[in-house]
């Protein structure tokens, strides 16, 4: 058990999870395609959040908000992000890393608006970074432009942060 802990904390940890997500997403796709797809939809932090929110609103309020075919057809929308919260909480509790970190009013505004905006950009592209990788792996080369965009965006943000830190003249 300790060996596994060191392995995940170490250099190879993310590689192991990357392989797990790649295969898990393909397995999940074997099931979601049966309920209506789309392809490369085994895991997506953005789209699955959208499906969960809009799906539950559609069921409870009778609204017609957009969501993926699979979540429209199934009795409940995809539950991936609920699972991520449960899995993350269990892992944090077990490793004694669970700590309430409070947010200042400024943080609340920045993070809330950040969340709203990121959802708009992500859904226009139709993927988060992870589904972008799944789509590219499935042979969708439009997703490659999205990944290039993400890298450019990260680079631009770092440039802006470094400028403002060095005085910004």
């Amino acid at each position: 058990m300790n060996n596994l802990k060191n392995l995940l904390n170490g250099q190879k940890g993310p590689i192991i999870l990357g392989i797990i997500i790649g295969f898990l997403a393909a397995i999940v796709q074997g099931f979601t395609i049966s309920a209506g797809g789309p392809e490369a939809y085994g895991f997506c932090a953005l789209c699955h959040t959208r499906d969960l929110v809009n799906g539950l609103l559609n069921i409870s309020l009778g609204t017609g908000l957009g969501l993926a075919t699979v979540s429209k057809a199934a009795i409940l929308p995809v539950m991936t992000m609920v699972g991520v919260l449960i899995g993350g909480f269990v892992a944090a509790k077990r490793s004694r890393e669970f700590r309430i970190k409070h947010a200042l009013l400024k943080d609340i505004l920045v993070y809330f608006i950040g969340g709203v905006l990121l959802m708009q950009f992500g859904l226009l592209f139709g993927a988060c970074p992870y589904r972008a990788a799944l789509r590219l792996g499935y042979g969708d080369f439009i997703a490659l432009f999205g990944i290039i965009g993400i890298i450019v965006g990260v680079w631009l943000a770092l440039l802006m942060i470094m400028r403002s830190n060095t005085g910004g003249n």
Partner: peptide, 12 residues
């Protein structure tokens, strides 16, 4: 895809 990616990268 490009605009969405750039937006996600900056906010992220």
């Amino acid at each position: 895809a490009l605009i969405g990616g750039i937006g996600m990268g900056i906010i992220g």
